[in-house]
Design a protein around this nucleic acid. Sequence first.
DNA 1: GTGATGATTTAA
DNA 2: TAAATCATCACT
Length: 198
Amino acid sequence: MELTPLNTKLLKASKFKDYHKYDTIHLAKHLLGKVLVSHIGEHTTAGIIIETEAYLHNDPSCHAYCNKKTKRNEAMFMKAGTSYVYFIYGMYYCFNVVSGAEDIGEAVLIRALLPIQGIEVMQERRNTQDLHNLCSGPGKLCQAMGINKVHNGISLLSDTLYIMDFKQVNEHEIVSTPRIGISKGKDLPYRFYTELSL
DNA sequence: GTGATGATTTAA
DNA sequence: TAAATCATCACT
């Protein structure tokens, strides 16, 4: 790997493990500024998390609304720090970080990343050169990082897919808005993003 | 078994 | 603004 200042910082960073220490809303904010890393298909890709959404168990737009377990959402009931990947619209995957207590059914949707590693691989997987079009959406970032249904239910403490501490984002740098693309729970301000660039 | 639908993306 | 595209879920 080329030893740029960014890569040096990445090499020194440690794996985030404290998923169980935050409630879902807090985790959704706390994950901003951290780095999602994938080692998939002989490739490494990574990006800084810049947009998330929280899905709570008592929230009508949550796949596990009222703690109802189904074949699709069963990973949401595993322990915090598990990956929940689901297939949507017949063609895309979305990646979530399971949060909250076990058997409750809550998660944080990762909506956008700032690509920092494996950009050429991402460009190939996404079939575009445009850096701003690689990870700027939940379906896009899964495609760019090679995330699919085989990664549903795996631990984010694994070496395949995990999150690293990287940048501390302060509360005043976080914007909250209603969530995108849902038909229920439209008014809840559970989408979080931060203006970050390299 | 059937039918509706979706935490999206793309192209027009 | 609409098409692409199919696994899942709630019903019958």
